[in-house]
Design a protein around this nucleic acid. Structure first.
Lengths: 221, 221
DNA sequence: TCGTCATTCAATGAAATGATTGAATGACAG
DNA sequence: CTGTCATTCAATCATTTCATTGAATGACGA
C-alpha cells in the first residue's frame, strides 16, 4: 500500500471501486438496492444469504462509495449512492456482452430464443401505452412495486402469472418488466404468457433504468 | 463455480469484467493501451514491470474481453477491445470521484490547487484553436504522439518543457494534454509553465477521450 | 535445422478475499 | 436499567489472487 505517486494512489482508489463490483453477489445486491433502499436484514432475506455475510459485502460497497447508509432507529437502510452506480454497472455489463463469449453462450442456453423475445424499448412502450394498445405488467414482488413503478403498470408477481392470465384479454399484447435487463422474471413471465396463448414481450430493461432515464414513476397509494 | 441459474451465471461473467478492472496496475495498462496498441514487452517497459507479470495481467484482461490480441510475427500486439472499455473505466472513475473521500484527499494533496488549474473543455479548446488564441502542447512521449494527436498540437515531452518554454511566446496561453484526465504529466507541465511565467491550463482529459468523442486525430507524417 | 527472441506457462510462496460462526455494539421498548 | 433486536465486529479456515522465477512454446532468420 505504499503510495509512490499520485497517479498510483488514485488508481488504487479506482481499483477499489471496480473490485467492489467484482463479485456476483455484490452485483446482485446492487440490482436489489436499485429497486429501493433496504435494511441489511431485508436484503439478506431477498438474496437468501446470512445477514453477517451481506453486512460485510455492504461494507465493501460502502468503502467504494457505491452505497450509502442511513440509520433509522434499529435499522440501517442502504441505498445506491446515486445513478452513476447504475452507469458503472451498465458499462461493465456492456463490455461483457460485447466481448465475453461465455455471456453469449449463457444467453443462448438459458434465455431461450431471446431473439424471438424482441424487447420493447422505453420509447416504444410509451407510445404503445399512450395509444392504449398494450397491458403493462410489473412482475416484481409487491414490495418492490410499491416503492415505484411505471405509471399504468399492474403488479403481477411471477407466481401469479397463470392465474392472472386467465382473466386477461387474450387478444391484447402484454409487456412485462422487472428489475433490469437481465432480470429473469420478465423472461419467464413472457415465456409463460406465450405458452398460455398470449402475445407478450419484454421491456428492454427494468425499473431502475426507467427511473434513471428521468421518466415518471408512480408510487403505491 | 456451480451454475445455479442463468442470472447468477451472467453476474459471474459481469464480475469477471469488473474484477479485471479491479487492480491498479491493470488500470494503468488500460490507460497505456488507450494510447495505441502495444506489445507485451513495450507495455512492460512503459510500466517498469517484469514482462511475465504484464503478460499475466494481459491474460486476465483478455479473459474479461477488455483487450484483444493480435499476433504479428514474433510480437503479440494488445489493444483495447473497443471504446466501451473507456466508458467502463470512466464510469468507475466517476463513482470514485463522487463518493470516495480518499480521492478528494489525494487530489488536494498532490495535484496542488487543482481548482486553480481550471481545465479547458474539448469544446472550448476547439474554439480557442479555431481562433488561433492558444498553443496546444501534447506532453506525452514521442511514440505516443506519433500514434495519434490532436490536430495542431506540438509534441513537447515533459522532460523538454523548460527548454521549449524559453523559445515560446510568453504572452500566449498554452494548453497541455496527455493520456487522460488523471495523467500527471499535464498537471506537471502546467505547473512548470506557470512557474516560468507562462499562462497555462490543462485540457480536461486526454487523447483517448478526444478520439472516443469522434474528434479528428492527426498521425505523425 | 538451429539459434534467437517475444511471449506464455507452471510452480512457488506471500497476501488478500470470502464464508461462517459467535460475540460485541448500539438503539429502542418496557 | 434491562431485555430485545438489527447490525457490526472478530476470528477462523478455505480459496483466490499476485509477483517472481525459471522453463516451455512458437515464430522468425541464418
Amino acid at each position: 500500500m505504499s503510495i509512490r505517486n499520485p497517479k498510483q494512489a488514485l488508481y488504487e482508489q479506482f481499483a477499489i471501486v471496480a473490485k467492489a463490483l467484482g463479485h456476483p453477489l455484490r452485483l446482485e445486491m446492487i440490482e436489489h438496492l436499485a429497486q429501493g433502499a433496504r435494511s441489511v436484514e431485508a436484503l439478506a432475506a431477498k438474496l437468501g444469504q446470512p445477514v453477517a455475510n451481506i453486512s460485510q459485502h455492504l461494507q465493501a460497497l460502502r468503502r467504494a462509495g457505491i452505497v450509502s447508509a442511513e440509520r433509522d432507529g434499529k435499522f440501517v437502510h442502504y441505498a445506491l449512492a446515486d445513478e452513476s452506480v447504475l452507469d458503472a454497472f451498465a458499462s461493465v455489463r456492456a463490455v461483457a456482452e460485447r466481448h465475453v463469449a461465455e455471456v453469449d453462450r449463457i444467453v443462448r442456453g438459458y434465455f431461450d430464443a431471446r431473439d424471438q423475445m424482441l424487447p420493447v424499448s422505453r420509447d416504444e412502450l410509451q407510445a404503445l401505452m399512450r395509444d392504449g394498445l398494450v397491458t403493462l405488467i410489473d412482475v416484481r414482488p409487491p414490495d418492490e412495486f410499491a416503492l415505484g413503478h411505471v405509471p399504468g403498470a399492474i403488479n403481477v408477481p411471477l407466481s401469479e402469472i397463470k392465474v392472472w392470465s386467465v382473466g386477461a384479454a387474450a387478444d391484447r399484447e402484454v409487456v412485462a418488466y422487472c428489475r433490469g435487463p437481465w432480470c429473469v422474471m420478465s423472461f419467464e413471465a413472457v415465456s409463460a404468457l406465450r405458452s398460455l396463448g398470449h402475445s407478450a414481450r419484454r421491456l428492454e430493461d427494468g425499473m431502475p433504468e426507467w427511473k434513471a432515464a428521468g421518466l415518471p414513476v408512480e408510487m403505491a397509494a
